[in-house]
């Protein structure tokens, strides 16, 4: 499907979604509350069939956080980017680890790096950082570590 066709189809599925054009891939902005049902539709709809989550990350904008999901279909070869704006003080979003299993580790990484709480995640704990780093989120822009970090 082309980006225009994807846009039409996704508007049918989720009328509340807004789009960003101009990039190579279609960017879709959604509300965090819609994400779980929308993700199921993206995965299971026979004409979309996004079976491959190839990037899951988060961006700290200092005022808010944005979850970014890159999805691809190995059958139809179309890609989309889904973005969800989160509150910086209490970031929460539903997990998609049962839809795309790769999200399991990616969500754990985002959890420790940005402090995003993934609701209903089966095993949300630190992945890379050593014990004792719970609650410290190094990739937040305001992260300070006077012990380990030597500022340039």
């Amino acid at each position: 499907m082309t980006n225009e066709e994807l846009k039409t189809k996704i508007t049918e599925l989720l009328p509340a979604a807004t789009f960003e054009e101009g990039g190579e891939w279609l960017n879709i902005n959604i509300e965090p509350a819609d994400w779980l049902s929308f993700a199921r539709q993206l995965r299971n709809d026979s004409s979309l069939y996004f079976d491959y989550l190839f990037c899951l990350t988060c961006i700290d904008w200092k005022t808010h956080l944005t979850m970014v999901y890159h999805l691809s279909s190995t059958k139809y070869r179309h890609n989309i980017v889904v973005k969800a704006k989160l509150d910086r003080n209490k970031p929460e979003i539903e997990t998609v680890s049962h839809i795309w299993r790769t999200a399991d580790f990616h969500e754990r990484e985002v959890y420790e790096m940005f402090g995003v709480n993934f609701l209903n995640h089966p095993d949300l704990r630190l992945l890379i950082l050593p014990d004792g780093w719970e609650g410290k989120n190094p990739l937040r822009k305001d992260f300070e570590d006077p012990v380990n970090m030597i500022k340039l």
């Binding site: 380990n148 970090m149 030597i150 500022k151 340039l152």
Partner: peptide, 10 residues
Amino acid sequence: FFYNTYSVVK
């Protein structure tokens, strides 16, 4: 990895 890292032993 000396500057601005939180995880590397110097």
